[in-house]
């Protein structure tokens, strides 16, 4: 069966019936195939709202595509290698990485039974993400937004172009040094969601975290924290159960002369 012998609209119909993970794999078959996908799937790619990297602890990350009608996992990145002969090499942005097709997510009701799984050593973690990100930028185009979601102790966020937002879940004992380093070395993000336990100062007063355009803080008890006194962005959304009224008054006073959006949800 020669796919290229089918009329264009039939090829388009076939590709429309494939999952993002399958389209991703198909793009490695040849340069011409990649070009065909890009031209056939313009509408589908335009429907992508955000591509999300999610590292929810453990030694793997997922790359999910969120589009108008829902979301689908596209691939996984694992910092370990299983004893398996099923690996196949893929050239991702000039670097060769081993992949396998993983069906263990089917039992969790995943829409995609077989998910491509990039396997790397823990020290390669950041470089594989950068390579994959570079590939995705070329494949989906520059208009797609990227989001980084991280929790537990996995706070290393690589420097990625088009990464506009991130969600961070901090625990009591979470070490925020890596986060502080990330903020200081990267350009300010468009938005950050931060869920944090009771802590006084998370970041230094000069931290670029406070320059983020929009921040969304979820904290049970806000106790003289720096968010209100250091924030320099445009929009802050605070969710908490208790806080000091004096903090609020100081904050509102500081912002009174500026046209910022203040949403206070208690």
């Amino acid at each position: 069966m020669k796919l290229c012998k089918f009329p264009y609209h039939v090829q388009e119909d076939i590709l429309d019936n494939m999952e993002f993970s399958e389209i991703f794999l198909l793009s490695f078959v040849s340069h011409n195939m990649k070009k065909t996908i890009k031209s056939c799937q313009v509408t589908r790619f335009k429907s992508i709202n955000v591509i999300m990297y999610e590292g929810s602890g453990g030694d793997y990350k997922t790359v999910d595509v969120h589009y108008k009608k829902g979301s689908r996992s596209m691939l996984m990145i694992a910092s370990h290698r299983l004893p398996s002969n099923d690996y196949f090499p893929l050239n991702i942005s000039g670097k060769i990485y081993d992949f396998r097709l993983c069906d263990e997510y089917a039992k969790y009701g995943s829409f995609c039974k077989y998910l491509p799984h990039a396997c790397c050593h823990p020290y390669e973690d950041e470089s594989v993400i950068k390579s994959i990100h570079s590939y995705l930028l070329d494949f989906f185009g520059n208009s797609v937004k990227y989001h980084w979601k991280t929790e537990k102790d996995n706070f290393i966020i690589p420097q990625l172009p088009n990464l506009l937002s991130c969600s961070i879940w901090l625990e009591d004992d979470s070490d925020t040094k890596a986060l502080e380093e990330y903020f200081s070395s990267s350009s300010a993000l468009k938005s950050i969601y931060l869920s944090v336990d009771e802590r006084e100062e998370l970041f230094s007063a000069e931290s670029k975290f406070y320059q983020t355009e929009a921040i969304d803080i979820d904290q049970h008890h806000m106790d003289h924290c720096g968010f209100l006194s250091h924030f320099q962005g445009r929009q802050i959304y605070l969710s908490c159960y208790t806080c000091y009224v004096s903090d609020l008054i100081t904050f509102v006073d500081r912002w009174q002369s500026e046209k910022h959006i203040i949403i206070w949800n208690t």
Binding site: M18, E22, L26, F88, Y114
Partner: peptide, 9 residues
């Protein structure tokens, strides 16, 4: 499309 489910490139 089903023919290539679970297949490598």
């Amino acid at each position: 499309a089903m023919m290539v489910k679970g297949k490598s490139p």
